[in-house]
Simulated assay, not measured.
Amino acid sequence: MLLCGIVNELKKSMAKSDAMSHFFCQATDSRINNSTAMLRGLIYLLVDRQPSLILHIRKTYDHAGKTLFEDANAWVALSEIFTNIVQDPSLDSTYLIVDALDECTEGLPELLDIIIQKSSVSPHVKWLVSSRNWPPIEERLDRAGSTVSLCLELNAESISTAVSIFIRHKVRQLTQEKKYDDKTQEAVLEHLLSNANDTFLWVALMLEDMYDDVESLQEIIGLCGSFLTVRKDKIYFVH
């Protein structure tokens, strides 16, 4: 969730000539839990941003066809294409963002190696990666040399403050859109603050439900005491 926010902010501040590509790993989804899928995803967004880069894909595709990207040699083929793309002289400042490295269940060592290698030979390419605090991943990434690390586990107070600010901001937006009265706003705010456990994702999912589903709000109100109720999709304060 944190990297989603960073992606959005980068898009606002990037120069028109800059490029950005991102990939979000998820261990429970076989389509996005491996190193090959990550490279494929990063390449796709880079080419979509700068169509001239498709020449690097076309050269390999014309030689071997699409099966080369699907069989056991896919990683080798995609690695070569990716290397050619990030070293393309027409590519300006580029941001590559990979979320949840620890969720990569297949090919993680190769994935870490390519991040290290390309960060050292392509200074115009900036990597931003996230992971749980796993020593093997941290130790390997330290080999990249010029890196900056932020350990969120050691910044619990800052994270808690950020989540609280996020909740208050989103509840104000929700209140304006749904036209909640003060009591309803306070009930929703209290529930989110009390149950977030400093987790952006949980808050975002709850808010999404509240925007679309009155039953979710009914559940929250049920936990807030007898002074609020929902009737015919409307919220009432019980005096």
Rank of each mutant, 00 (worst) to 15 (best):
96 L>R: 01
87 Q>N: 14
190 E>C: 10
105 T>H: 12
71 D>W: 07
235 I>K: 07
196 A>E: 01
208 E>R: 12
81 I>F: 09
106 E>I: 11
232 K>F: 05
64 A>P: 00
199 T>M: 12
128 L>H: 03
106 E>C: 13
204 A>V: 08
172 R>P: 00
181 D>W: 03
62 D>W: 01
219 E>Y: 12
132 R>T: 10
20 M>K: 03
180 Y>A: 03
33 N>P: 00
48 D>I: 08
129 V>W: 04
159 I>F: 05
138 E>Q: 14
181 D>I: 04
171 V>P: 08
206 M>G: 00
171 V>E: 06
219 E>D: 14
139 E>T: 07
231 R>Q: 15
220 I>P: 05
126 K>H: 14
228 L>E: 04
84 N>S: 13
90 S>T: 13
122 S>T: 15
99 D>S: 03
6 I>R: 04
98 V>L: 05
168 R>M: 09
236 Y>P: 04
187 A>V: 09
87 Q>D: 08
87 Q>C: 14
172 R>F: 01
27 A>H: 15
53 L>P: 07
179 K>N: 14
104 C>Q: 09
69 F>H: 07
110 E>F: 12
91 L>F: 05
76 V>C: 02
137 I>S: 04
184 T>R: 04
238 V>P: 05
118 K>P: 01
34 N>S: 09
116 I>E: 06
180 Y>P: 06
172 R>V: 11
39 L>Q: 09
83 T>H: 14
98 V>W: 02
64 A>E: 14
66 K>G: 00
197 N>V: 06
4 C>E: 07
32 I>N: 02
214 V>H: 06
238 V>D: 12
228 L>F: 06
44 Y>C: 01
213 D>P: 04
112 L>H: 08
63 H>K: 12
13 S>C: 04
110 E>T: 01
66 K>I: 13
162 A>H: 07
86 V>G: 08
105 T>D: 11
124 H>F: 00
237 F>M: 02
117 Q>A: 15
123 P>A: 06
118 K>M: 08
194 S>H: 13
116 I>Q: 05
105 T>R: 13
5 G>D: 05
9 E>K: 11
142 D>G: 01
220 I>H: 04
203 V>I: 07
170 K>M: 07
21 S>F: 01
13 S>A: 11
4 C>P: 00
33 N>K: 10
213 D>G: 04
116 I>A: 06
60 T>L: 11
237 F>L: 08
232 K>S: 11
220 I>Y: 02
30 S>Y: 14
233 D>W: 09
32 I>F: 03
39 L>E: 08
67 T>A: 14
44 Y>N: 11
21 S>W: 03
62 D>I: 11
202 W>E: 00
153 E>Q: 12
7 V>S: 04
203 V>Y: 04
19 A>M: 10
142 D>M: 10
41 G>C: 00
72 A>D: 15
223 L>H: 15
94 T>N: 03
50 Q>N: 14
210 M>I: 15
195 N>K: 10
157 E>Q: 10
222 G>E: 11
124 H>A: 08
79 S>V: 00
116 I>R: 05
230 V>E: 13
13 S>D: 05
228 L>A: 02
43 I>C: 11
29 D>K: 13
164 S>A: 10
76 V>Y: 09
9 E>P: 07
